[in-house]
């Protein structure tokens, strides 16, 4: 499974668990409009660290703030390489 596929599958799974209606995931979809709240994003980050072995948010000195789904995916693609 590619990093992108893992990230997207995790987003879909967590949205489902928290009964959030998720619009189709496109790279330019703003995270704020995804229906995911900050707690969902925290769960996604924790699960991805478990699955991919990386957490781009903890390893960075400064706060990283991806705006879109595409930026979020890219953070993980960059961190995994």
């Amino acid at each position: 499974m590619t990093v992108r596929a893992t990230v997207e599958a995790t987003i879909v799974a967590v949205a489902g668990e928290h009964a959030k209606a998720l619009p189709p995931l496109t790279d330019d979809l703003p995270l704020l409009d995804s229906g995911l709240d900050s707690l969902c994003l925290a769960v996604i980050v924790a699960r991805l660290e478990d699955g991919l072995g990386v957490d781009p948010f903890s390893t960075s000195e400064e706060a990283v703030l991806p705006v879109t789904v595409g930026e979020f995916v890219k953070l993980y693609e960059d961190a995994a390489h």
Binding site: E17, A42, V43, A46, R47, E49, D50
Partner: peptide, 8 residues
């Protein structure tokens, strides 16, 4: 808590 989030 993060570990608990993974467990769900």
């Amino acid at each position: 808590v993060r570990a608990m989030m993974v467990g769900g």
